[in-house]
Computed example of a mutant assay.
Amino acid sequence: MTPRLRGRTALVTGSTSNIGRAIALAFAAQGAHVVVSGRDETRGDGVVAEIERAGGRADFVRADLDGTAQASQALAAEATRRLGGRLDVLVNNAGIYPPGTTPTTDPATFDRVYAVNVKAPFFLTQVVAPAMVAAGGGVIVNLGSWVARRGLPMGALYASTKGAMETLTRAWSAEFGGGGVRVNAISPGVIRDPALDPSSQFAGETLMHGTPAGTAGHPDAIAAAAVYLASDDAAFVHGAVLDVDGGRTGVTTTGR
């Protein structure tokens, strides 16, 4: 079987751990040359080494996406250079989730969460999407979240940033779709980081009670969706938000 992303190039932000790492590994396994990006060089080099051991191609580019246009532009430029001058797929995955409620959120935290979760991908897309149009097309995959559409009594700030990313997905699809750029999003449910101790309690499990899955998901489920959206199999998919959430958003079961 031909790898679904053979010959493609991709940048995955926040890909030194968890969901981003899984996407980078899956893209490389499907034939893409991947730029792994994040703040931790040691972890980034580890992901690159893992990809190369499996026969894939990857580079690490350190980036602290602080919400400034300069940081996003620098990452786009260096990633494109490492990928031979062409970037086919951008995955806007990097994000932060500080715990807290609306009354306990200070202005500095508010600004930082919006800087990392919204401004950074906005300015990255601002430079990458026009370059994709000029090259004849490309794919952008954003990471939303089920909490953007299911109200919870905590995490309002984070939920609002993910709602912004899902809205930007539709807006960017309209803005750049005519130029051959497909823009879609994935809305993950509760995902358990494989780096956590398997024997430890994971509070997120309770949030999946009453769903068809009944338990937290694995990052590989999100990676599989990202591969689909990045591939030609999704050629007719534009402006969609794909729920990969074990049924958390749309389904309630009984007896669990």
Score class of each variant (00 low, 15 high):
residue 253 T to S: 11
residue 105 T to I: 05
residue 160 S to K: 04
residue 103 P to N: 12
residue 149 R to M: 07
residue 111 D to E: 15
residue 169 T to N: 04
residue 175 E to D: 15
residue 216 A to S: 15
residue 89 V to E: 04
residue 205 E to Y: 07
residue 146 W to Y: 14
residue 88 D to N: 15
residue 81 R to M: 10
residue 99 P to L: 15
residue 145 S to F: 06
residue 18 N to L: 03
residue 55 G to S: 09
residue 82 R to T: 09
residue 8 R to C: 03
residue 229 L to I: 01
residue 204 G to K: 10
residue 190 V to L: 06
residue 154 M to H: 14
residue 116 V to P: 02
residue 145 S to V: 10
residue 69 A to I: 03
residue 70 Q to G: 15
residue 215 T to V: 14
residue 54 A to F: 04
residue 119 K to F: 07
residue 155 G to C: 07
residue 252 T to F: 13
residue 98 P to T: 12
residue 45 D to N: 15
residue 188 P to L: 13
residue 239 G to N: 10
residue 201 Q to R: 14
residue 104 T to E: 14
residue 207 L to V: 03
residue 65 L to K: 09
residue 252 T to L: 15
residue 94 A to R: 01
residue 58 A to S: 10
residue 181 V to A: 10
residue 242 L to V: 12
residue 30 Q to V: 03
residue 150 R to L: 15
residue 221 A to Q: 13
residue 246 G to E: 05
residue 26 A to M: 01
residue 36 V to H: 05
residue 207 L to M: 15
residue 171 A to W: 10
residue 129 A to D: 12
residue 26 A to N: 01
residue 174 A to H: 11
residue 73 Q to T: 15
residue 20 G to Y: 01
residue 177 G to A: 14
residue 209 H to M: 14
residue 63 A to W: 04
residue 53 R to K: 13
residue 16 T to R: 04
residue 124 L to E: 03
residue 215 T to S: 10
residue 234 A to N: 10
residue 227 V to S: 00
residue 220 D to P: 00
residue 216 A to R: 01
residue 118 V to C: 10
residue 157 L to V: 06
residue 120 A to Q: 02
residue 31 G to Y: 05
residue 50 E to K: 11
residue 30 Q to T: 06
residue 195 A to M: 04
residue 98 P to A: 11
